[in-house]
Amino acid sequence: MTPLASALSCVARAKIVCTRGGNSQLGKVHLLLLGGVDEGAYVKLKGDVDLELRARMRYEIIEDDREGMGPYRVTTRWYEYSLQESGGQAVVEYHWHPGGLSHEDRPHVHLGTAQLRPNAVMTKKQHLLTGRVTFEQVIRQAIEYGVEPLCADWDDRLTAAETPHVLYRTWSVAPNMR
């Protein structure tokens, strides 16, 4: 939770909460939410653009018997990060939902309706494959779109938060493609 909270603090004053036992209970998939207990909650971001952020993640605390790594680690099971305009129009949505209702279970992005014309070649339903996307990457993208960082050292904070994940993750393109 600490790295994610540090990343979020770069653009918002909001809480990250998880389901009961989410800090210690092994073998159960937990839900992490941004901004409180409402699964649909968006957090307002400041800046030149009118954007809101939602982040939801399912994760599990598992045993890790790799040399020098364990005894435990957190593994992501599913994520959904979304940036939308305050009026509710999606801008971009980053998804990875294996075992969900969609036929696509690899990490992907959807362009939101705010970015598409009615006669566009692409639709909001199309899956643009991305490889694994981190919460920190979404925060960086929001800042690139014009969201105002709340701290001068935001780049260093995002790098520090993301580095352990990048160094120790077990996959980056798709779970079956290391």
Rank of each mutant, 00 (worst) to 15 (best):
I61R: 03
R54N: 08
F135Y: 06
Q25Y: 07
S172C: 09
G100L: 05
A7Y: 04
A90Q: 11
Q137V: 01
D64W: 07
M177E: 11
A5R: 11
G47I: 08
V29H: 10
Y79Q: 10
M177Y: 02
K46E: 14
H30R: 11
G40C: 01
T159H: 14
N176R: 03
P118R: 13
K15L: 03
R140D: 07
N119M: 06
E60I: 12
V43Y: 06
T19C: 10
I61Y: 00
P118V: 09
C10E: 07
F135R: 06
Q89E: 11
I61H: 02
T134V: 06
A5H: 05
M177V: 12
M57P: 03
E148M: 13
E136S: 11
V29W: 10
L167T: 13
E93G: 03
Q84T: 06
G35Y: 00
Y168V: 09
M1P: 10
Y72L: 15
T19K: 12
I139P: 04
E63P: 00
A90P: 08
V109C: 08
L33K: 14
I16Y: 05
G87Q: 05
V91M: 05
V133S: 01
Y42G: 00
G27Y: 05
Y168D: 12
C18W: 09
H110V: 14
G27W: 07
E80S: 14
P164Y: 09
W96D: 04
L116K: 10
K15M: 02
R54P: 00
D64E: 14
E67Q: 11
R178D: 12
L8A: 07
C151V: 15
P98G: 10
I139L: 05
Q84H: 10
G131I: 10
C18Q: 11
H110F: 06
H103F: 12
L167N: 14
A152E: 15
R56N: 11
L158D: 07
V92Y: 00
K125L: 09
H165Y: 11
G146V: 04
K28R: 13
T75C: 14
L111P: 00
P175Y: 02
G22Y: 12
H95Y: 08
G40M: 03
S86G: 14
R117I: 03
D65A: 12
A41L: 05
T76M: 15
K15R: 10
T75M: 13
L32I: 04
V109E: 06
L83F: 01
D156I: 06
E104N: 13
H108A: 09
S9C: 09
N176F: 02
Q25P: 06
H127V: 00
V43S: 02
V173G: 01
G27M: 08
G131C: 08
